[in-house]
Write a protein that binds this DNA or RNA. Structure first.
Lengths: 215, 215
DNA sequence: TCGAATATGAGGGTCAACACCTATGTTTTA
DNA sequence: TAAAACATAGGTGTTGACCCTCATATTCGA
């Protein structure tokens, strides 16, 4: 089976080099190339390649914007981001937008080729380095673990209320929802704060807003 | 090259079935199996398999806990979560813990095999269905885009203050930090609320807590 | 069975956020 | 240059979060 590709990168040497490498793979067919994001978007919408390989840092439109716009225009193309950046935020943004592959430029050529194969088969591929990076993120995990430990001390009613707080409900609204007194809700809130060792102004609101996904 | 595997799942039929399927792959060698998480952890620490395939929902210890504990004990084993759940939160938790693969039980057998190969090569593999799921998450992305659009209306001073709010600072503290009047800070806060179309109690605090990562 | 934890409710107070208003000097822009 | 936007600052008032103490009924574990 043949996979049609387009490449977008503003560095000609890198772009041509990559195209050359991909030529050695018989099942890949590079049907277009672009030196900036605007051009890339145009080619994608005109030629509908199976896979688009995009640099993040390009003139006119960045790779992520190209991807975002193309997907909004119902493009069927799948996207690989090929970048020098291994910032977690960029990676997360890429995942949110809906890219199918994320590979670092200094990864092995075989990684890039594997990535294209995976993505062409509708799989998701993330470069080993990025995986490493995500694993290193365990600092965050430790915090989460501590929170989990504290959350164990919390009773059923308290958890019910904590959830409602995280859903932006005020004590009055929670009271109305649960058919209990507003005062009771406030007492529960206080108890939660004590158990979670939260203090200061609006501590529970901040806490609930931050960990609403883990409740 | 040979890859040593262990399988942990509390459903014997599923477990035996999977082992049988994997036997047909010559380069896989199943060196252990477990019906609960405790057993699984023991086998992993004793035999150091290349890859451990874990169910999430198991007695004694869940798959994610096994993974967490093993990694804390410096295990070199790489982990694949094989589950029926496609909840985003579980997936995110798995990624945070540092699993290398995430596959749904109702995925094709070839997906599972591909996953093992990828993971054995130190790649990260995520099941196509989950990818779909993450892509569907674009509802969230649209919100993010709207927030970004609104954030553009915000001035430099306002952004500076918004950042400090997201860092848990009160108006008084911000005033002291920036050598301006607390009243000025409050005015800026009000203006931010208007521009971001935030209303209700503590709206800015909630907003800042939620999008602190995007500022 | 007895004490501890829990769920419920109340009264008291403090403080910060926010909403609305005015005002003045500066900077940017049309 | 005139108008708009911005940063600064103040006033006044409402509301809700959080803190403290107290009280009662129920449930649950030792």
């Amino acid at each position: 089976m043949n996979h049609t590709l387009i490449i977008a990168d503003d560095h000609p040497v890198f772009r041509k080099g990559l195209i050359n490498i991909l030529k050695s793979e018989k099942s890949f067919q590079v049907i277009g190339e672009a030196a900036d994001g605007g051009e890339a978007l145009k080619i994608i919408m005109q030629h509908n390649p199976n896979v688009a390989i995009l640099d993040i840092d390009m003139p006119v439109l960045g790779g992520l914007e190209v991807c975002r716009k193309a997907l909004k225009l119902k493009s069927q193309t799948r996207f690989i981001i090929l970048t020098m950046f291994k910032e977690e935020d960029l990676f997360n943004e890429a995942m949110n937008i809906g890219v199918s592959g994320y590979v670092l430029k200094d990864n092995a050529v075989s990684d890039i080729i594997n990535c294209i194969y995976s993505v062409a088969q509708n799989d998701l591929y993330i470069s080993p380095d990025i995986k490493q990076y995500l694993t290193t993120r365990k600092g965050k995990q430790i915090i989460d673990e501590e929170i989990s430990k504290k959350l164990l001390k919390i009773t059923t009613s308290e958890l019910r209320i904590l959830k409602l707080v995280s859903e932006n409900k005020s004590s009055k609204e929670i009271a109305a929802l649960l058919f209990i007194s507003q005062k009771t809700v406030e007492n529960h809130r206080s108890n939660i704060c004590r158990k979670m060792e939260l203090e200061g102004n609006y501590a529970l609101i901040k806490f609930a807003a931050e960990c609403k996904n883990s409740l």
